[in-house]
Design a protein around this nucleic acid. Structure first.
Length: 483
RNA sequence: GCACCAUUAGCUCAGUUGGCAGAGCAACUGACUCUUAAUCAGUGGGUCCGGGGUUCGAAUCCCCGAUGGUGUACCA
């Protein structure tokens, strides 16, 4: 680093402080020059970017210049630049940001290059970059210093470009379907719409504790009451829970609501969004995730939770009448934690999560969740009030989304909130909090509505074959390093 | 939260039974007018994650701590 600072000092003394430069010429990008070589050959272009590798041959040298599209080779020759300019070029360091102008041509070895006829140092790099060949491997450094990761690991840049394209695709698809993009509060007085522990913060002027939202659901449904009919929000949710390769404390959800839809229309939309995004970035529905072949071609398999438990767990909850029988069956199958008050629905849900989820590798909609775990979903008729019109999306054994026919009966919603309140008082810190203003909104009248939430980070992991959620978040949550 | 593993030069990694701290790339000096992990010759570079202990002697063994990874618990 010392040598580089000294070089900068000399430049400044000679009135060539690169940090004073305010504009640069960049007529083309690296990938464009390679792709359009036939048309650009012998044309003069200006490229700008970071010097990555250099191969000096004495009076001739080669360098790789990285811009947002990729790398292009720069060919520099003493004859073209003159003594001073060539010497200064040779004095550059890997990592320096430069602008180069010259003709596009192909070298003797066939490499498409820019002939350096004129160049400027745009900014000095004072710290050495990680090694070009092995790249930066250490996950700690990669996540904490993502700028280095992006410079030296090209596939990382590709992943985040794909993430952006996936989200753009979903916006476009919802736009086509005449959805309105909205924004609702991140600072909540009642953290609702999900079962999760919130982060707490404080508003000084109001002397009021506020919660970072755990889901936008209750706000978005108020907008359905307000007549916007089709709304969506792509934004951050915050949940104060454990971290893993699938969980980050802040994560991105797509939530949407469609008046006059139900959970069946949400299935079709789910396929359009996820399969469509897959086709958009991969050009196929057939992908591999961590070595496992997956087919995202719609329509996806649909099965009820009762069917899934029957098939993968070997218990037929349709044949079980009482809570006691359900507990007995679950215990007999090996479910470990079976409290004495466990209900039929809880036993079904626990058996599913414990023994069935892991088998759902190919995309599968699991339908009809027990009412106890679905306080915001409409009752499915013909199930004695035990089940709701709800589904979750499982791919590679992981949940990727959740949808309901939204509960719009204010009396029923009030009873469900009361039930959640009892669970909370019984020690369940993650039970939903009652939101009486939301019930008032339902009293004004909410049309039958389908709602859907998709975990964007997990979809990006899936479609870009990344093993950890931290690989699809530019700045995943990290513990600070001690002093 | 618990368990296991990792942490050595700017980066990627070796380091045997406890006995002089190593390599490649990067850097520095020089040679080289079509290279592409350029090549060739030479040089410098260390808080072995931090703290404590055992020992004549610790990168190596023990204890405590930090950060990361994996698994697990928790988790719409």
């Amino acid at each position: 680093m010392g040598f580089r600072i000294e070089k900068l000092r000399v430049l400044r003394e000679n009135g060539q402080d690169p940090y004073q430069i305010t504009t640069a010429r960049q007529t083309h990008h690296a990938a464009e020059i390679v792709a359009d070589f036939e048309r650009l050959e012998n044309e003069t272009v200006s490229v700008a970017g970071r010097l990555l590798a250099r191969r000096g041959m004495g009076k001739v040298s080669f360098a790789d210049l990285l811009d947002r599209s990729g790398t292009i080779q720069v060919f520099s020759r003493l004859n073209n630049l003159g003594d001073d300019s060539y010497a200064a070029w040779q004095n550059l360091d890997i990592g320096d940001l430069v602008e180069v102008t010259g003709e596009v041509f192909r070298t003797k070895m066939g490499e498409i290059s820019v002939r350096n006829m004129e160049w400027r140092l745009l900014a000095k790099s004072l710290r050495p970059l990680p090694e070009k060949f092995h790249g930066l491997r250490d996950t700690d450094t990669r996540y904490r210093k993502r700028y280095l990761d992006l410079i030296v690991n090209p596939e990382v840049r590709e992943t985040f470009i794909k993430r952006s394209r996936i989200i753009s695709f979903m916006r476009e698809e919802l736009e086509r379907r005449q959805y309105l993009e909205v924004e609702t509060p991140l600072l909540n007085t009642i953290p609702g719409g999900a079962a999760a522990r919130p982060f707490v913060t404080h508003h000084n002027a109001l002397d009021l504790d506020l919660y970072l939202r755990i889901a936008p659901e209750l706000y978005l449904k108020r907008l359905i009451v307000g007549g916007l009919e089709r709304v969506y929000e792509i934004g951050r949710n915050f949940r104060n829970e454990g971290m893993s390769n699938r969980h980050n404390p802040e994560f991105t959800m797509l939530e949407l609501y469609e008046a006059y839809g139900d959970y069946h229309s949400m299935m079709e939309l789910t396929e359009a969004l996820i399969s469509g995004a897959c086709m958009e970035i991969n050009g196929t529905y057939e992908i591999a995730y961590q070595g496992t072949s997956l087919s995202l071609a719609p329509p996806w398999r649909r099965m009820t939770m009762v069917e899934a438990v029957r098939e993968y767990v070997g218990i037929d909850f349709d044949l079980i009448e009482t809570d006691e029988e359900a507990r007995e069956a679950a215990r007999a199958r090996g479910l470990e934690d079976v409290p004495a008050r466990m209900t039929w629905g809880e036993a079904l849900s626990e058996c599913f999560e414990e023994f069935a989820e892991q088998h759902l590798i190919q995309p599968t909609f699991i339908l009809d969740y027990p009412i106890e775990v679905s306080p915001l979903a409409k009752i499915k008729q013909g199930t004695n009030g035990r089940l709701t019109e709800r589904f979750e999306i499982f791919i590679y054994g992981r949940e990727h989304g959740n949808a309901y026919s939204e509960l719009n009966d204010p009396f029923d919603q009030a009873r469900r909130f009361d039930d959640q309140k009892r669970r909370r008082e019984a020690g369940d810190e993650e039970a939903n909090l009652p939101d009486y203003d939301f019930i008032e909104a339902l009293e004004v009248g909410m049309p039958p509505t389908g709602g859907l939430g998709i975990g964007i980070d997990r979809v990006v992991m899936l479609l870009t074959d990344q093993p950890s959620i931290r690989d699809v978040l530019l700045f995943p949550t990290m513990k600070p390093l001690g002093e």
